[in-house]
Each structure stands twice: as C-alpha cells, then as structure tokens.
C-alpha cells in the first residue's frame, strides 16, 4: 500500500559524510549531516574517513533528523539509502542500518544511485521557498571531488551519460593544487576565496583536449606543479606573493575546461535547460561564468542550494520519493555495490 504524499527518510553514507534527511511529499522537513553540532547535541564523533565514524554517527544523525522534522519513526513510509557507488565499508553501514529500520517498522527500503541522486537534488522543495526545477529533458553537469560528468536527463529515471573525466575529477584538481600551495584540505573553497583577489589571466595553464564531451584534469595538476617548481627556483617566496593570482588562474582554467564541454554538449543536444550539481557547484566563479553563458546562449540554469550540492541525505530522499511513487522499491535483500554504474 503506498501513499500519494509519502514521508521518505533518506540515508547517505557513501563517502566521508553521514547525512540523513526527511521529506514529506517532495518537501524538505529536515536534512542533517554529522557535524560538531550534532555531536554536542546527540553524541557521536566529528566526521572522519572511516566506516567506523559512520557507525557512531548514524544514530545521533537519525535522532536529530527526526527531531528537526518533528516526525516519529513510525510515520515514515519508506527508507531510501545510497547503495553505491562509494566506499564499500561506508555503504555497508548505511544499507545495514536502513534494513534494520525498514524491518523494525515494516516499511519498504529503496536503494539509490548516488550519482542519480545528485541530479535529482534539483527537485527538492522547501517550505515557504520558490520552487524552480529544470524541465525535462535537461543537461546536468555534476562536478565533485570524485566525479565530473555531463548527463542528459530525460525524466526522473532515464538518464544518459554524455561525457566524463578520464582521470582526475575537477574537485580533485582543486584539492591537489591547493595542497601544492600549502592550503588546507579540502582546497576548493580556499582557492575560490583567494581567487577573488587575483587576476585570472595572470598565468596561463594548458587546457586539456579530450575527444567528444570527456574531461581530463590530471594535466593541469602536473602543469601547475612544474610551474611552481620553476618559479620557486627563482623566487622562494613565489607562492606566498602570488597565491591570489595563482588561485585565480588555476580556477579560471578548470572552469573554462568544464564549460567548454558543457557548451559543446548543449549545442549538440540542442538543450537550453542546464543544471549544475555536486560539491564543486558551490564554487562562486563557476556560478558567475555559467550566468554569463546563460545570458549569451539563452540558457535557463539551475543550481541547487549549497546544502544539496555536497553529499547529503535530502538528495537520497528525493530520489527515493520518485521511486516510491513509481512503486519501484527494493526488498530486504538489497546489497550495496561500490562499483554501481547507473549510466
């Protein structure tokens, strides 16, 4: 028996973050990611890289998500959980926990593809906020620490991979270059911040030339490394003095690569509905550049709110919502798949 206005609980534990959210009829009631604050209020530990951290975080995160949503566990209609791709040990924690909850409450479990969920994050509604989602079919650029993909989205369930990175992800290039510059991990936000003070055209780094709509971000990482080595030989304070210009130039180049292929894909598929998702979608310059492009090419562009860009439970819950309404639920035999490929 399924409801038309279901309450869905979404659990995400595929990588670093433990996050749980509750949606009622597509509308967000709560979205909680394990953090110092959850730790203070409900116990558990600050996120670190480990399935053990997920294990100690998951119960406090659930309790806070239920409390914030003002929902009792027996009001939940289905549990959506990331089944892959991701780190197996971390996925197992989320899936096993979801199974326990589903069995105890006699409700269905719904396995979700993490990459599909990043895209469906655009369809999360919020109370008292305008809802403006992309219209099918649209192109989605998903950029994060682990992924750089262009996907054609035909409907909630049918998606085609048009292009992707053949080596490093864009977010990884940000992180590794920031490490060379002595900035803390994760480096994307630091580069974004310093780039605002620098000249994006001061230094020129190579643009990778990949076939079709594919990306490569390994080359810029190496190019920046040689560039820094060379400059540091002449001037040991080069990084210190030039960090803003280096950050601005690196960011400019990475964004240029991302957008070149996106433009090409938009032209080839004759699409002007363009959505961006994933952790790198919070980058302010990427957002600026896309706004410029959308004015020029008459695109309608869509960015999820920051909390729905990074890994989060709400995107898992929204993907679960659509699968639930489509009566596409799993059984208790659901197993995580670290190598899951939706596309």
């Amino acid at each position: 028996m399924s409801k038309t206005e279901p309450i869905i609980l979404g659990i995400e534990s595929s990588c670093d973050d433990t996050s749980i959210a509750i949606l009622k009829n597509q509308t967000l009631l709560s979205n909680v990611t394990a953090s110092q604050k959850v730790h203070e209020e409900f116990g558990g530990v600050v996120p670190e890289l480990a399935s053990r951290a997920h294990q100690s975080n998951i119960v406090p995160t659930l309790n806070k998500a239920l409390k914030d949503a003002n929902v009792a566990i027996n009001e939940i209609d289905a549990i959506a959980v990331t089944k892959g791709p991701g780190l197996l040990g971390s996925l197992v924690v989320g899936v096993s926990f979801a199974k326990g909850l589903a069995m105890a409450n006699n409700i269905p479990i719904i396995g979700i593809d993490h990459m599909q969920a990043h895209i469906l994050a655009h369809f999360i509604k919020q109370p008292n906020k305008d809802f403006n989602a992309p219209k099918f079919p649209f192109l989605c650029l998903t950029v994060s620490g682990g992924h750089s993909q262009i996907i054609k989205v035909n409907n909630y369930f049918e998606m085609e991979l048009i292009g992707q990175t053949k080596d490093d992800a864009a977010g990884e290039a940000f992180d590794k270059i920031s490490k060379m510059l002595g900035l803390p991990y994760p480096g994307g936000p630091h580069i974004d911040r310093l780039a605002k003070l620098g000249d994006p055209k001061k230094y020129v780094f190579p643009i990778s030339n990949m076939p079709a709509y594919n990306y490569s971000f390994s080359g810029i990482k190496t190019a920046v490394m040689y560039f820094l080595q060379k400059q540091l030989k002449n001037d040991p304070n080069f990084i210190k003095n030039e960090i803003n210009n280096i950050c601005a130039s690196v960011q400019f180049t990475i964004i240029k690569m991302l957008l070149q292929k996106l433009k090409k894909a938009a032209r080839a598929t004759n699409t002007n509905e363009i959505a961006i998702s994933g952790g790198v979608a919070v980058n302010s310059e990427l957002r600026n550049q896309i706004r410029v492009l959308s004015a020029k090419h008459n695109w309608n562009t869509y960015f999820p709110e920051m909390q729905f860009c990074t890994d989060n439970g709400a995107m898992i819950a929204i993907a679960g919502h659509f699968k639930y309404l489509n009566k596409n639920v799993d059984t208790i035999n659901l197993v995580p798949d670290a190598r899951l490929k939706f596309f």
Binding site: P85, G145, G146, G171, S218
Partner: peptide, 8 residues
C-alpha cells in the same frame, strides 16, 4: 580513473 576521493 583516480581513486583519490573514493580511496579505492
């Protein structure tokens, strides 16, 4: 592809 983010 690089497993830096996924670890493995």
């Amino acid at each position: 592809s690089s497993p830096t983010y996924t670890l493995v």
